[in-house]
Computed example of a mutant assay.
Amino acid sequence: MKYLKTIPYIIIIALTFSCNTIQAQAPKAVQSAFENKYPGENDPDWEKDSNGNYEAHFKQKGEKYRADFSPNGQWIETESSISKGDLPKAIKAVIKDKYKDETITEIEYVTSASKGTFYDVEFKRKGKNKDVEFRANGNIIN
Rank of each mutant, 00 (worst) to 15 (best):
K130C: 01
G116F: 09
P27F: 09
G138I: 12
K92Q: 14
G127M: 11
P88I: 09
P8W: 14
K100L: 11
P39K: 07
I11L: 13
S32G: 02
D97R: 01
G40P: 07
Q60E: 14
I95E: 06
N139E: 15
E122C: 01
E79R: 13
R135V: 11
E122V: 03
A113N: 02
N20A: 04
Q25K: 12
S83V: 09
T117C: 05
S81T: 13
N129G: 07
N42F: 04
S32N: 08
K130F: 14
A136R: 14
A26E: 08
W46Y: 06
K84N: 03
K126E: 08
P44N: 06
Q23H: 13
E106R: 11
Y119L: 07
K64H: 10
V110R: 07
P39Q: 06
Y54S: 06
I141H: 03
Q25L: 15
P8R: 04
I95P: 05
C19I: 10
Y9I: 13
D86A: 11
V110E: 02
Q25C: 12
K64S: 14
W75G: 13
C19D: 07
N51G: 10
C19S: 08
H57M: 11
K64A: 14
S81M: 03
Q23C: 12
H57P: 07
A67I: 13
S114F: 07
N129Q: 05
T21K: 12
I13P: 00
E55Q: 06
G116C: 10
I22C: 09
E106M: 09
A113C: 04
I91C: 07
D101G: 05
